[in-house]
Amino acid sequence: MTEVKANMAGNVWKVVVKQGDSVEADQDVVILESMKMEIPIATEEAGTVKELKVAEGDFVNEGDIIAIID
């Protein structure tokens, strides 16, 4: 199991996977919007999206858990 965490503070702009999707390592899970930039957040490990902890429009802080990959 691996936790995908926000690497900087920002707003969730797009969630690009759904619960139950299988993902590869380095695949983007969400795209944050911060400092007016698109910030893709990828999973380090491959697996299945077990849980999405955020929705589009949410504010996340650095270190917040975005998704759990199993």
Binding site: N7, M8, S34, M35, M37, E38, I39, P40
Partner: peptide
């Protein structure tokens, strides 16, 4: 590196 943290400086 715009691919990481938008290339913002920390």
């Amino acid at each position: 590196q715009p691919r990481m943290k938008g290339g913002v400086l920390f």
